[in-house]
């Protein structure tokens, strides 16, 4: 087994554990490269037919290419797709001028509404430790209380592939099968498996997105990388961090921590 095989096997093990313990499960799909890789791993884990839905938290501000990709591949892969939007907030005019309040209202609240509506006990998320210092502190199976609060001061111990089996009433468990993958690992796996990825990641007019979210708060970087091979080459030499173009990581040093403590992904 090489490194990618090991990463893949570990992730599949975690995904299967989550499904065994939590039947009301969903995979959070943001249409980005990580969550699409996660969906791909779910297809492998369940031999092609994922027995739970994919959940897209739509803020209304996503790139049109993302919506197209989502609709096309959910059909091709035969997935049940749930789309959740915080309609009330959007109608009331919530938008990026409100900065972090917007992330909280449209993403975090959007997720809360979905959980309340569908009764999910656990969610699969594609976050990785190397994306952000705060995410580096995460567990594979991480509980969230009723208010979605992340009690990072007192996380459950995780030893030897033994994870939290049950969600207490009114809480949910976040499962992170990609924690141990790095940005380069993801791209190498995409390359090896030929996983379809939205075109936004590839260079257009000398710019490409290294990390994607809403059109309003996402900035592209200068790059000529237009294939997966070129992206990998670029990553091996870059010194900028992946999320350098994301507004919510910048606001204030502890923004990400505050957001995550309130339930953000």
């Amino acid at each position: 087994m090489d490194r990618l095989d090991e990463l893949e096997s570990q992730s599949i093990y975690i995904i299967r554990e989550a499904y065994y313990h939590y039947k009301k499960l969903a995979v959070l799909w943001s249409i980005g490269k990580d969550s699409t890789t996660l969906v791909w791993l779910c297809r492998k884990a369940f031999f092609g037919r994922i027995p739970f839905p994919a959940l897209h938290i739509d803020t209304g501000y996503k790139f049109p290419q993302m919506y197209r990709f989502r609709d096309e591949y959910s059909k091709i892969w035969g997935m049940e797709l749930y789309v959740s939007r915080n309609e009330e907030a959007i109608a009331a005019g919530m938008g990026p001028e409100r900065k972090l309040d917007c992330c909280t209202a449209l993403k975090t609240q959007g997720l809360k509404l979905a959980i309340a509506k569908y009764g999910f006990e656990a969610l699969l998320l594609g976050i990785r430790r190397d994306e952000h210092g705060i995410r580096a502190k995460e567990r594979y199976f991480s509980p969230r209380d009723e208010q979605f609060k992340w009690n990072y001061q007192d996380q459950p111990p995780e030893l030897w592939d033994q994870y939290k089996n049950q969600a207490e009433e009114k809480t949910h468990i976040r499962v992170h099968p990609l924690l141990h993958w790095t940005e380069v690992d993801i791209w190498r796996y995409i390359q090896r498996e030929q996983i379809p990825i939205t075109e936004l990641y590839f260079s257009k007019d000398g710019m490409r997105y290294r990390s994607i979210g809403c059109t309003t708060c996402c900035n592209p970087v200068e790059s000529d990388a237009s294939t997966v091979d070129e992206i990998i080459e670029e990553l091996e030499t870059t010194t900028t961090s992946e999320r350098a173009g994301r507004a919510q990581d910048k606001e204030n040093t502890y923004t990400m921590q505050k957001l995550r403590a309130l339930g953000y992904m």
């Binding site: 190397d130 502190k137 990072y152 996380q155």
Partner: peptide, 8 residues
């Protein structure tokens, strides 16, 4: 330091 982190 309260909790572990992993860095590459």
């Amino acid at each position: 330091t309260i909790d572990t982190a992993q860095i590459f």
